[in-house]
Design a binder for these strands. Structure first.
Lengths: 135, 135
DNA sequence: GCCGGAATTGACGTAAGCGTCAGTTTGCGC
DNA sequence: GCGCAAACTGACGCTTACGTCAATTCCGGC
């Protein structure tokens, strides 16, 4: 029994350069997420070393981003995920947030629809102007 | 024949305060639009006086905003509108821009749809987790 | 001739998510 | 023991559409 107190299924420690390439993000982004408390890779005399766990968190972060969550919201998820091994409260909270986001996006959808409708109408009017006023 | 070289169907000159209230915008916004060349009200010893023409332009500006055009795009429209009394090029340009915007917004619509779909799936999964893992 | 309210012009602040230096340190290879 | 590549830490930049002071000026009323 060694002292690996954290889950770490074998080594897979990558440097920032490689991680950035793997995930398709910049090193700056990785440091930014760290500055904002989303990840906290080990340090070997300053240099960041990303474990498998860090990679998993990054996947969650990138997914959250794609889904339109802000950095703060994502951190909220991750924090709760960390503090709730049973995952009950975490899932519950996630569910709430996801539902809120769905409501939000559906509202955006309605607004978008309306705007597109107006634009199409404007387009028709403009096209008519052009045809009837053709020089 | 007087020297009113500009169109001005009768007086209707309002101060910034009244105009702001009428349009539901702040005075700061009005000054901002002026700084960005969207409107240029007369000055009476410094104080801004908004003519009917200015009001008309403000209506266009606000409409453009509602339709999701940026200040720059709106200025583009207004500039062309100013320089093209025949309105042919202006309408033509407007048409192009409107169509671009429609394409843009439709793309956003697709992306939104996709995102909402993913969120709904996540919602379902989370709900299931909660029900089956209920304490 | 003074007071108060309204208008004016800077100019910095805000939010989000990094981009982009600049200057320094570390580590590896030979 | 040196050089260069790579990593690090600030810290300011960017974009958009104004918000929010702050300091000044102007105008009407009494």
């Amino acid at each position: 029994m060694n002292q690996m107190d954290d889950h770490d299924p074998g080594p897979m420690h990558k440097g920032i350069q490689e991680v950035a390439e793997m995930l398709g993000v910049t090193q700056r982004a990785l440091r930014f997420y760290e500055d904002n408390g989303l990840i906290s890779p080990q340090r070997v005399s300053g240099t960041r070393i990303y474990s498998r766990r860090d990679m998993g968190r990054m996947q969650l972060i990138l997914r959250g981003k794609r889904l339109g969550f802000s950095i703060r919201e994502i951190r909220e998820f991750l924090d709760l995920y960390d503090r709730d091994p049973t995952q009950h409260d975490q899932i519950s909270h996630l569910l709430t947030r996801v539902r809120e986001k769905i409501v939000d996006l559906k509202a955006q959808q309605v607004a978008l629809e309306k705007t597109i409708g107006e634009l199409i109408q404007i387009e028709a009017e403009a096209a008519e102007q052009l045809s009837k006023g053709g020089a």
